[in-house]
């Protein structure tokens, strides 16, 4: 085997990864240590978790959610997983297998919810029935089911695998529109309030490249394929723009997001209070909502009455729009 000439910054052993934003290379052991340290730093700085918390991790079968589950268990937290079957054809079938394999290999509890079996619809059908982009129906469905599963299961914290790239891309989009309401809510911790569990994002100091590397080094198999319904969405375009900046100026992405949290988010505190204070209860499920029926129940109402729509049909229509 041909060795890399690069050496680990810590031990001077052979490096397995270069991290330009740290201007350093790391071996496997010290790369994992760096990731653990970044997660601990995020947890402590933003008061995300406590040792006695009952944690529910939203798991998709992708690298980020499996990595955050692995990291939290590795750090000693009691964490169960929640997988939602979205019904996106083979992509969902394969994703579920990765989530199940991860859980069973480690003796962890994985809760599963099937949109089709339990609510009578899937994401392709919801996209067609509601005439909205698939990511909209998907996000609304997942958020509702994550919240209700966490509350009903008695979990004290809901964890998602949003990483630095995800958060920087959302911040970029919100800033392009100067959407103050969304900017005010773009925090790594959302406290529990009526109808909502506490939600935290322990990976906000780590990039998706680092999370892919974590999975490879730790031997975690994950869904490598991109969701076919996400192709061409704005989020990916924002990430590409930020990656172009990052390649010219390593560390820019972290500065953009983490300095927002330090310097800008405090100035926006309270700006989203008006929206949350005015919430009532959904007449169907009791979830918090600004209207009579919550967004999730509106999707269920429209989509469960619709004939099932194959993934391919939504994809071909989506490509035509872009």
């Amino acid at each position: 085997m041909v060795a890399s000439g690069s050496k680990c910054r810590v031990c001077k052993g052979p490096a397995i990864i270069d991290l330009p934003r740290h201007n350093a290379h790391f071996c496997a052991e010290h790369f994992l240590e760096l990731c653990r340290r970044q997660v601990v730093k995020a947890i402590e700085k933003f008061d995300m978790l406590h040792p006695d918390d009952r944690v529910l991790v939203a798991v998709s079968g992708g690298k980020d959610s499996l990595a955050v589950w692995d990291l939290l268990v590795d750090l000693g937290y009691q964490a169960d997983g929640l997988y939602i079957g979205l019904g996106i054809g083979e992509y969902s079938d394969v994703s579920a297998e990765f989530a199940r394999a991860f859980a069973s290999q480690r003796g962890l509890k994985l809760i599963e919810i099937s949109l089709r079996e339990e609510y009578g619809y899937d994401i392709p059908t919801a996209a067609k029935a509601t005439r909205r982009v698939p990511c909209s129906a998907c996000g609304t469905s997942k958020r509702h089911l994550f919240d209700s599963a966490a509350l009903e299961g008695g979990y004290t914290v809901l964890v998602t695998g949003h990483n630095l790239d995800d958060e920087a891309a959302v911040l970029f989009g919100n800033t392009l529109r100067w959407d103050v309401e969304y900017l005010a809510r773009q925090l790594p911790v959302l406290p529990a309030r009526a109808g909502f569990p506490k939600k935290v994002k322990p990976l906000v100091r780590l990039t998706e490249r680092e999370m892919a590397a974590w999975c490879i080094v730790r031997g975690i198999d994950y869904q490598v394929e991109e969701c076919p319904m996400a192709l061409g969405n704005k989020h990916l375009a924002y990430k590409a723009a930020l990656n172009a900046i990052e390649s010219e100026s390593p560390g820019s992405k972290a500065s953009f997001y983490l300095n927002f949290l330090d310097n800008m988010a405090p100035l926006l505190a309270g700006r989203s209070a008006a929206a949350t204070d005015a919430l009532g209860e959904c007449r169907s499920c009791g979830a918090p909502t600004t209207g009579d029926l919550c967004a999730f129940c509106r999707i269920v109402e429209k989509s469960s009455a619709h004939d099932p729509v194959p993934v391919e049909l939504v994809l071909s229509k989506g490509r035509g729009r872009r």
Binding site: V2, S4, G5, D18, H25, A28, K63, I216, A230, L231
Partner: peptide
């Protein structure tokens, strides 16, 4: 870059016998 099942940095030298996988990392969910 994954070479023969092991992660390697971008400046690693490869030999003709190496099995190399370049894995994409960008995901579109938000």
């Amino acid at each position: 870059v994954i070479r023969n099942g092991t992660l390697v940095p971008g400046d690693a030298e490869l030999s003709v016998d190496d099995v190399v996988e370049i894995r994409p990392v960008i995901s579109g969910g938000s």
